[in-house]
Amino acid sequence: MQKTARIRLTADGRRAQLVDEAEAMIAQEGFSNFSIAGLAERAGISRAGVLHHFAGREDLLIAVLDRKERESAALSSRYISDRGAPDARAILDLLVRHNIERPEVIRLFSMLAAESIAPEHPAHEHFKRRLHRGAEQLEPLLTGYSRSPQSIAVELLSFMDGMQLNWLRDPTLDLWEHWTGFADAYFEGLAETERNRPAAT
């Protein structure tokens, strides 16, 4: 196992280092094989030193997941700030392009999402809520249709997650092509439904 030479860091710097190392270890070995002792060795500090900053394995796992979600939220916020209020399709396209550039992060999320299906897994509730949090962020951009914004958002995010999982299994799949083909047809279907809906009397 790779071991990092011990250096003095601020408390925030040490926490960030531990989250970095934990993310790399979980991506390589899965959470079930991740240990505080292994993290301490890799980070070049004692087990007690790790536990000074994090309560345990579960605390570190949630820190890894929370940081990744904050990164995605910040990306969307910067896009909105730079270009004004975009539609949901623009935000989803942005996230898909971003994910294509970081397959190792998507692999980590997919691995943990599968492991956390078990109700006793420490990330079970996190992933259960993740879809609803993502849908809530998209809902204000999906108004104006006869169907509920929540239903539309859940379907879009579910396709994205499923397609990314297949892309990880088979990198020869063109994730961008499959996403845009689906999204074009999906949003056109929504628009067609609205065009054909009888006018209110």
Rank of each mutant, 00 (worst) to 15 (best):
M1G: 15
M1L: 11
Q2N: 05
R6M: 09
I7D: 03
D12F: 04
D12G: 12
R14T: 15
Q17I: 04
A24C: 05
Q28K: 12
S32M: 07
N33W: 03
S35P: 06
I36W: 04
A37G: 05
G38Q: 06
A43S: 13
R47G: 13
L51A: 09
D59H: 15
I62D: 04
I62S: 04
A63R: 09
S76Y: 00
S76C: 13
I80F: 01
I80E: 01
I80S: 05
S81L: 14
D82N: 06
R83A: 02
G84N: 12
A85D: 03
D87Y: 00
A88N: 00
L94F: 03
R97H: 11
I100W: 00
R102E: 02
L112C: 03
A113K: 00
E115A: 08
P119R: 03
E120P: 04
A123G: 13
H126R: 15
R130Y: 10
L131Q: 03
L131C: 06
L131I: 14
R133M: 14
R133S: 07
G134H: 01
L138T: 01
E139S: 12
T143E: 10
P149Q: 09
Q150Y: 13
A153T: 09
V154C: 09
L157C: 09
L157V: 08
M160P: 06
D161S: 12
Q164T: 07
L168K: 02
R169Y: 08
P171A: 15
L175R: 05
E177A: 14
H178I: 03
G181E: 07
F182L: 08
F182W: 13
A183Q: 08
A185I: 08
Y186C: 00
F187Q: 02
A191Q: 10
T193L: 14
T193K: 14
T193R: 15
E194M: 15
R197M: 14
A199S: 15
T201H: 13
